[in-house]
Structures are given as structure tokens and as C-alpha cells.
Write a protein that binds this DNA or RNA. Structure first.
Lengths: 367, 367
DNA sequence: TTGAAAGCGCTAACAG
DNA sequence: CTGTTAGCGCTTTCAA
């Protein structure tokens, strides 16, 4: 099964037609419309093509002519290495890839690192539409995508008028988690959240930064917390929130440390992702704090690793998000006005959240 | 940040030039060669473009003209869902994506399910080259790729003359694992391997099927085993080998069950992947067999889950494979003759392989 | 069934 | 610094 390397395009549809003494149309038909051709002629065309080393119609030229690239672009402004290390992102990717595969469409990963402002890659992408996964609303790559005259659907964030979107109700989901903790008796909590803006800010978050966060999802989750705890007279400005730029276990651990250092009285650590929560768990263990007896910890996403760890978390259908995004983009029908798909989430009461020590109940009845 | 949906391409470079009363070259230069233009004129061009809703040069037309798509195609003939569930495949993907990102190239996932013989997707892919990941040598998609006049590099399998390849020495790696088991005293083993051919064959494998396997990597690993055990007079035809089409934990478990049912005297289960080995572990546990006291189990790949389980396995640099494949493809230099990159592997002596009960040593000195 | 004509939208010499 | 001239390789009416 040998073949020569780096073959120079040897023949074109035109040269093949010339060789055969037929028109270009006929050759084109041999490939694209077999029924428009006598089987005998078609056989001759294909055979001559093989002999001349004609590799079939050039896909790019065809795309130019038909105005169809046969591919969907995926924009995720995140170092690819993080994306492929984040189970939630992988689940999304899987769902999207599935939808594309079903439709016979390719999936183009657009190279867009957050550092490099290489918007050119977006312009260069030969695709029939874009899926944008979880980017800040001021992302230049996103802006470039929106300028392209192709349909776009955003997953998770940002939430834009006039752009299709699939996501969940982040605020409600986090509100439910907060209610859970509140009902357990927690009033003194610390929060670990993901990147709120494009700039790196590893540390405590000011209320102002929370409000102005360009990562809409994080903003919504914090808002859900604030709202719920507000109902039990917990002043949100008193609740310490720590942000981490990198989304890793190590980040979760160091963030937890930072919170516990500032206020050892904290009874629960609310994390806006399972990865961060898993990191918080390791920090708790390192400190000899038992979870949930000494400290409750909650996550968000419902990844498999979290389930194995028994994490109390919010499960969201990541694969379905990807599939829905793909379907939405590929469904040419009813592309009249912007559509929104909001998938449902589920509070998973694991074994990492319980009533804090010294609740009223414990004081009355003993631990 | 509103925008209308499904915009019809409103303007072209030509119409923009006409509107401005300049040549097409000038407009083109405004986008591609800012230095060939007075800043003032460029500003005017860009502004008029915005006013007319011209989204910039069409990427497909540009690709046709420049003969560069700015993307590499990835062919993995495997249901995408499996690929995204296999940590080794994800690691490869990450490495490849990294290499592409470094080069500013897109990565196109070509939709090619093993079921559907949709070779058309390969023809439709607008890419400057292909990376083929671990497919059987008789895969029709592979054949279609090789017909395209673009460079190609294969990762793992198959091993083709005249095609760049990156992989490991599978036979040697498995040979080393076999030596390890042999030195521990194992002579009666069972083998669990992955798909050997495109057809589904969940069960025992005949020697003939082993020899004629189209999945080169599996064939090489089995050969490594056969060779090593041959040196200690274990007749390879007596060694039961069970094949599984699906690469899942469940497959590993059922395969292990099948082997142990046939021969309960087996002292070691050699699996050609960690996933399968992890499955075998669950089956051992289900049967109340202690690992490694009652049964040794080995894997292959060195995925994180295996490490956590303390699996005795062969670690291979999956991410590096992806990165190397990308680099090889993107390095235009020295594309004269086929190149081969063979990465090194490492035997990881975990806690799942030990001397079998009733070895000579134990008989002499007691367990 | 087949062919002729007309671009799809753009870039790249080369000349001015 | 700007314009002219030629295509890149293909599909697709419309006629024959």
C-alpha cells in the first residue's frame, strides 16, 4: 500500500475532461450525479481518473461553488489543554461531535487561545456555522464569529440577544444548592468560583467584580447564592468569594486554603465546579478536617469523578448540551427568530454536605 | 450586541471595491497586507466594509486561491462517543490539538463512523493534511485519505510504507510485560484484547484470526506475548485469547469472566488496554478473587485511572503521540522520504501483578 | 445524455 | 502605493 509523498495536484476535473474528450459537466456528473450518466461512460471516467491520478473534485473549489463547507466550527476560548482535561467540556464535545456525525458534518476546532488575540483563525475557518462554548461576553474571538455571515449558537455563555443559545438556569440551580445548605443550617460559608473575567485574578473578589463579571455563568451562580442567603439575612458582602483563573484541582485546593485561612469558622465551602470542589476536598483532608462533619463542600457539574467522590453537587446534562447545540445549528428549519434551549439540572445530595457542628439542633440534642 | 440571523452574504470584495472606487487588489491588501496601503486608505476601506456589512474575505474563496485550508483533518474510525470516553484517545487529541494550535491551524474532526461507509466525508474535508489515528489497515476511510493529494501521518496503526508514522514499539512493550509476568512465575495466562478486525467477534480468538488481524497494534501486542512465553515453553496455541469489539470497562469484565470460566487455573490476565484491565479487576472482585494474590491482572496505556488503581501496566506517552503527529504533519521541512517517530514506553510495576500462588518458591518455602 | 457558458470570491504577479 | 490581468477548480442552469 505504498504511495508517493507530497503529491503535487496532478490533474483537475478540466484536464480529465480534456483527456477523455468529454465536457467538464460530464466528469462532474460522474462524481456527483451518477444517474445523469451512462454507467459505461461513468466507468470510463472513473478509470481514467485513476490512471491520471485525479483524486476527485477538489473539496475547496466545490465548497466555493456550492457555498457549503460541510463543517461546523467550534470556538472555545480556553487553552485546549484545559478543555481536554475538563470532563464537563469533554462531555460537551462528545455531544456536539455526535450531532455533527449524525448530520455528516465535520467539526472544526478553531485555534483560539485566550492569550493570543489571533482572531484571524476565526476568519480563516471554512465552516457553515459556529458553536461557541462558554466564553466571556467581551471575547474578541466571539466578536469575530458574530461578524461572520453564518448561523451561530452559543452554549452556556454569554447570553446574547438574537443569538441561539443552549444552557441551563445557572442562577436557579445554584439557588437550589444554597437552599439545601441553608436548610442544613449553614450560615457561614465561603465561595470558590472560576474565572470571572479575562484577566487573571487569583484571590478574593470584590462585590464590584462580581457584578461586572464577563463570564455570565459564574455571575449567575454567584447571584443565585447571594439571593438565597439574602433570605436568611446573610449579608452577601460579608461572604468571602475567592476566584481562580485556572480550572484545576490545585486551584480548588489553594482557594479553599485561602478561605479557611481567612475564616476558620466557615462551615461550608461552595464551589462553582466539581473540579474546584475536588480540590477543596484535598485541602480539607490535608488540614485534617473531616467532610462533612467539620466542613461541608459542594460542587457543580456532576462529573463522574464527583459522583465517585460522593460530592454534593448540581448535575447538568453536559452531553445533551453539546448535542442540542449541534442540532440547533444544523436544523435549518425555523431559523427565523432566536431560539433558546434550557436544559434541566438536578441537585445531587451526596455525602459531602451535612449539618454543621454546633447547629441549634446539636446544641439542643448533642452531636 | 444584537445581530440578525442567517444573514445573506451582503457584499463581496469586488462590490466593496466598486463602492470605494478602488481596485480589488487594494481592498484585498487592506485585509492581508496592511503595509501595502496608506493607513488612511485602509481606514476608509475598513470603515466602508463595516458600513456595507462586508464580513471580510471569504475563507473558502481565499483557500481556493491560496491552496491552503489552514486546517488538518483527523480521522479516527471509531464512534466518536468511544473516542471521547477513552482517556488515551483524549490524551492523543489533546496533544494533536496543541500542536495545531501552536501552528495556528484548525483541527477538523472528520465524521467517519465505522458503520456508515461514508467515505464522502473524507472527500469533502477542506484540509491541508490528515492525521489518521489507530485504524485497521483495510479501512475504506483510510484508503480515501491516502488518495487525497495531501500529506498524511498515521498514529499507531496501520504501519504503511511511504507514510509518515508515529507510534511505539508495541511488540517490544508487550514482550517486556510478558517477561515481567514470566519472571514472577506465571505460565498459565489468559489474554483479553481489543477488536482485531472490523467485524464484531466477541469471544475466543483463533490463531488464524490473530495472525490476520487488521488492527496492527493488537496483532503486535499478541505477538510480543507469544514470543516471550514461547521462550519458556508455553505453547501459544494453548493460551486462551478473548476479543472484545467494544472498548469499555464492561467488555473487560465480561471477557475476564469468559476466560476464568474456561480455565479457573489461570494465574494472570493480560489485557491489551487499561480500560479492559479495569474491567477485569471488577470481575475479579465480583468473584471474590484477590488481586494480585489469587489473580494477577495487567493493562496497557498508563491512563490516570489505571495509576489510581495501582495497575501494573505499560505507560505510553499518549499526549506526546498527538503532539508528534501534529508536528510531523505541519513540519513542511524534510518531507522527502517517509519518517517514523517511535516513542518510548515504560513498564509500570503496580500492585496488581505478583507471583502466583503455588509457585516453586512457595512450594519450597511456604506461602 | 451531453456540452457551452458563466461565474463562486478571492489573491498574486506584474506593471505603472 | 494602486490597478490590470489571470486564473484557483469546480458546479450549474440552459440548450442542444
Amino acid at each position: 500500500m505504498a504511495r508517493s509523498m507530497h503529491v503535487r495536484r496532478p490533474a483537475t476535473l478540466a484536464s480529465l475532461a480534456a483527456e477523455l474528450g468529454v465536457s467538464r459537466t460530464t466528469v462532474s456528473n460522474a462524481y456527483n450525479r451518477p444517474d445523469q450518466l451512462s454507467p459505461e461512460l461513468r466507468r470510463r471516467v472513473l478509470e481514467t481518473a485513476r490512471r491520471l491520478g485525479y483524486p476527485g473534485p477538489d473539496p475547496v473549489a466545490r465548497s466555493l461553488r456550492t457555498r457549503k463547507a460541510g463543517a461546523v466550527g467550534l470556538l472555545l476560548t480556553e487553552n485546549l489543554s484545559y478543555a481536554f482535561r475538563d470532563p464537563a467540556a469533554i462531555g460537551f464535545l462528545e455531544g456536539l461531535a455526535l450531532a455533527c456525525e449524525d448530520a455528516g458534518q465535520g467539526l472544526l476546532l478553531v485555534p483560539a487561545s485566550p492569550e493570543r488575540e489571533d482572531v484571524a483563525a476565526v476568519h480563516r475557518a471554512g465552516v457553515d456555522g459556529f458553536v461557541v462554548y462558554s466564553v466571556p461576553d467581551d471575547d474578541p474571538h466571539l466578536a469575530a464569529v458574530l461578524e461572520r455571515p453564518v448561523p451561530t449558537v452559543v452554549c452556556d455563555q454569554p447570553d446574547l440577544d438574537n443569538v441561539d443559545r443552549v444552557g441551563i438556569d445557572d442562577q436557579a440551580a445554584m439557588h437550589a444548592m444554597a437552599q439545601h445548605l441553608i436548610s442544613l443550617g449553614h450560615r457561614r460559608i465561603g465561595v470558590v468560583c472560576m474565572r470571572l473575567n479575562r484577566d487573571r485574578n487569583d484571590g478574593f473578589v470584590t462585590p464590584d467584580r462580581q457584578r461586572s463579571a464577563h463570564f455570565h455563568v459564574q455571575r449567575a451562580r454567584l447571584a443565585g447564592l447571594a439571593q438565597a442567603f439574602g433570605t436568611v439575612d446573610v449579608e452577601w458582602t460579608d461572604v468571602p468569594v475567592v476566584e481562580r483563573f485556572d480550572h484545576t484541582i490545585a486551584s480548588g485546593a489553594s482557594a479553599a486554603a485561602q478561605l479557611l485561612d481567612r475564616d476558620p469558622q466557615i462551615t461550608a465551602l461552595v464551589c462553582t465546579s466539581d473540579i474546584l470542589a475536588l480540590g477543596a476536598m484535598t485541602e480539607a483532608e490535608r488540614r485534617g478536617l473531616r467532610v462533612p462533619q467539620d466542613l461541608s463542600i459542594t460542587g457543580f457539574d456532576g462529573i463522574r469523578e464527583a459522583e465517585q467522590a460522593g460530592l454534593t453537587t448540581v448535575r447538568q446534562p453536559v452531553l445533551e448540551k453539546g448535542r442540542a447545540a449541534g442540532k440547533l445549528l444544523l436544523d435549518s428549519a425555523e431559523r427565523s427568530r432566536p431560539r433558546a434551549v434550557t436544559l434541566s439540572t438536578e441537585l445531587v445530595a451526596g455525602s459531602t454536605a451535612a449539618a454543621p457542628r454546633g447547629t441549634a439542633e446539636e446544641r439542643w440534642f448533642g452531636p
